[in-house]
Simulated assay, not measured.
Amino acid sequence: MKQDTKIINAGRKSKWTQGVVNPSVQRASTVVFESTTAMKHAAGNKTNQVLFYGRRGTTTSFAFSDAMVELEGGAGCALYPSGTAAITNAILSFVKSGDHILMVDTAYEPTRDFCDKLLTNYGVETTYYDPLIGAGIEALIKENTSIIFLESPGSITMEVQDVPTIAKIAHQHDCIVMLDNTWGAGVNFQPFDYGVDISVQAATKYIVGHSDVMLGTATATEKYWPQLREHSYTLGQCTSPDDLYLALRGIRTLGVRLNQHEKNALKVANWLKTRPEVETILHPAFDSCPGHEFFQRDFNGSNGLFSFVLNCGNQKALNALLDSMEHFKMGYSWGGFESLILGITGLKNMRTATQWPYENPLIRLHIGLEDVDDLIADLEQGFEKFHQVLATS
């Protein structure tokens, strides 16, 4: 099936839909059995999607897991109550005391906190690496390296990684390749075609698409799916069927939403490129973005999330710009229908393996589904406020 057709049909097997269009919302904690034989069968049938206990899943979660596998590939998908939970539990499922992991230096901040504040207590060492390291990753692999974790593009500074090269080298050293694929959303980047073993998403973002559900996924290859499934179950991870129903509904419009996000964002980014206040555009589709060549080679498209760096400014002027926005709201998430803005200073303090080359503030935008001319007008008046304050600072 073509991608758009797959999006419409994913997770809609007749055993989940029962003759209607959408899978039902099946809420359950206790599953009851007609006989001891049936109970034993369910308890021992961990590899198949059968009702056993609410934490193992219901027909709603089985339908959503199927949908994610059909979109991303892999052999199975584990579900979590947030994207952070998906990242941390995927890592915990495959590390032990004495292990070493390689973590991309652009990693989502909670991922870095998990490595620095929790994994160290369990005797797991983390080394951060340059997202553009490519084949140079081999020099950092140790005998006890178990996982190489990627995030491509980086969710703030947008560096695109050479995933297949890193994956090839990782597998030569028996390392598991994990990828935060939230930006790719399972549509714009097909992780298992490029050597990824476990693809993690904050489904909170584009999968759900409406800023009303916290949800995480980790999809794995046949080799790693049984361990990911059982360890996540042992760690107590489960999700709400009501949230999963909303995620299933979000999937149906994923393709058209991403297309519109991409179209709007490219128009805004091209307008920003003409602004005298902007030093550089960090959008994977622009050649000014580090790793742009890998985006061109590996991705099917982009979305609404990108950043740009100012060529002047201070915190007071940046605050004036941010505070003046009407259509862009300030928020730490992205992937919903609404436009968001985030101003960031001090990026040099957020890196340990690489040097951030810019002195002035970075602004991250998520371009939503509003009329793009209204968004540009909003940014234009924001720049006016920025200059007014800058002139008096």
Rank of each mutant, 00 (worst) to 15 (best):
F286T: 04
F286C: 11
F286W: 10
F286Y: 13
F286E: 10
D287F: 03
S288T: 14
C289Q: 04
C289S: 10
C289K: 01
P290N: 05
G291A: 02
G291V: 02
H292I: 02
H292C: 09
H292D: 07
H292Q: 14
H292E: 12
F294V: 10
F295N: 04
Q296E: 15
Q296F: 05
R297V: 06
R297D: 14
R297M: 13
R297L: 15
R297S: 13
D298F: 14
D298T: 14
D298H: 15
D298P: 06
F299G: 01
F299K: 03
N300A: 12
G301S: 09
G301M: 09
S302A: 14
S302E: 13
S302M: 15
S302V: 12
S302I: 14
N303R: 06
N303L: 04
L305N: 05
L305A: 02
L305K: 02
L305I: 08
F306Y: 10
S307L: 03
S307V: 03
S307D: 03
F308W: 05
F308Y: 13
V309M: 12
V309W: 05
V309C: 12
L310A: 15
L310W: 15
L310G: 15
N311S: 12
C312D: 15
G313R: 10
G313E: 11
G313F: 09
G313C: 08
N314L: 04
Q315V: 10
Q315S: 11
K316E: 13
K316S: 10
K316P: 01
K316N: 11
A317R: 11
A317W: 14
A317Q: 09
L318E: 07
L318I: 05
N319P: 04
A320K: 08
A320Q: 08
L321V: 06
L322K: 13
D323M: 07
S324F: 03
S324E: 09
S324I: 01
M325I: 02
M325S: 02
M325L: 08
E326R: 12
E326Y: 10
H327C: 05
H327K: 08
H327Q: 09
H327W: 06
F328R: 05
F328N: 04
F328W: 05
K329W: 03
K329Y: 06
K329N: 12
K329V: 05
K329Q: 08
M330N: 10
M330T: 09
M330D: 08
G331Q: 07
G331R: 03
G331K: 07
G331Y: 07
G331H: 05
S333L: 01
S333I: 01
S333V: 00
G335A: 01
G335D: 03
G336V: 03
G336R: 00
F337S: 07
F337M: 07
F337A: 09
